[in-house]
């Protein structure tokens, strides 16, 4: 299997706080991998380092064999990494199609073009991407009035604009209704299969994680405590203790109550 993303000994320290500490893992081509863990475990910090929003204190991140550690987000994106955010970051003052067109304009390096009208550029490509996420019928609506689930799908379409080899999705289903969650994750799984790309995502909803992830990593207090298949992780004693819970933790207290 080809390794797309290789993370070695990644660390981030804020003063004395070790938010992420010596994290090492790989993501293979065509793999849908989840990163889970309690709030404050360092998932977001980890993600922000992978995408270049934060500079790591130590360690190395390489993409398809190339060292991308500490590069700014836009350089990492140009090397084929798409990203969706926990809190959606779309352009509120544009239409749905224009949001995707903007990413395509950037991908084709036409940002500083001053002759053409932007809303006419790469419209067909944008509609094709919107078709994939099932948003083509809303292409000309204002982004500001979209429902939350639709915004998430729009973000996914934007993330596909540069033909990525790797997608990073930070809590893709947060704030969605259960049915919508299932739909979005199924969509993601289809995209992974059809385009043979890799996805690394963080998630709180264990149903989503266990149903869709090929492999699961568990982060706790900045350290990776498990990395394996759903069954392996589910049966890992340490994971049960710190995150999933096994019902034994409060045995002592139960006696009091």
């Amino acid at each position: 299997m080809t390794v797309v993303l290789k993370v070695e000994n990644l660390s981030k320290h804020f003063g004395g706080l070790r938010a992420v500490n010596g994290v090492t893992f790989d993501v293979a081509r065509g793999e849908l991998k989840a990163l889970i863990g309690p709030n404050g475990a360092g998932k977001s910090t980890c993600f922000n380092m992978l995408m270049g929003q934060l500079k790591p204190s130590a360690g190395r991140v390489s993409l398809n064999g190339e060292d991308i550690t500490g590069k700014p987000p836009r350089d990492i994106w140009r090397r084929g990494v798409g990203r969706t955010f926990q809190i959606t970051g779309t352009y509120q003052s544009m239409t749905v199609a224009e949001n995707v067109q903007m990413a395509l304009i950037s991908h084709h390096r036409k940002i500083f073009a001053i002759r053409p009208f932007a809303h006419k550029l790469y419209r067909d490509e944008a509609l094709a991407l919107l078709e994939i996420v099932g948003m083509a019928d809303q292409a000309d609506r204002a982004c500001a009035i979209l429902a939350y689930g639709d915004l998430k799908r729009l973000e996914l379409a934007i993330a596909l604009a540069n033909n990525p080899t790797l997608l990073l999705m930070d809590e893709p289903t947060a704030g969605m209704a259960p049915k919508e969650r299932e739909r979005l994750m199924q969509l993601t799984a289809d995209i992974v299969r059809d385009r043979n790309i890799s996805v690394l995502f963080t998630e709180h909803d264990m149903d989503v994680v266990f149903a869709h992830a090929h492999h699961i990593m568990v982060l706790n207090r900045g350290e990776l405590i498990a990395d394996g298949t759903a069954a392996e992780v589910r049966n890992n004693a340490q994971v049960q203790e710190v995150y999933l819970g096994g019902g034994t933790l409060y045995a002592k207290e139960d006696a009091h109550a």
Binding site: G89, E98, M102, A161
Partner: peptide
């Protein structure tokens, strides 16, 4: 459009290759 993109969400703009 790139100006408006940076204004609306500079995070998204940077994450999609816009300086």
């Amino acid at each position: 459009y790139a100006l408006r993109a940076g204004r609306d969400s500079d995070r998204q703009a940077e994450a999609t290759g816009i300086n």
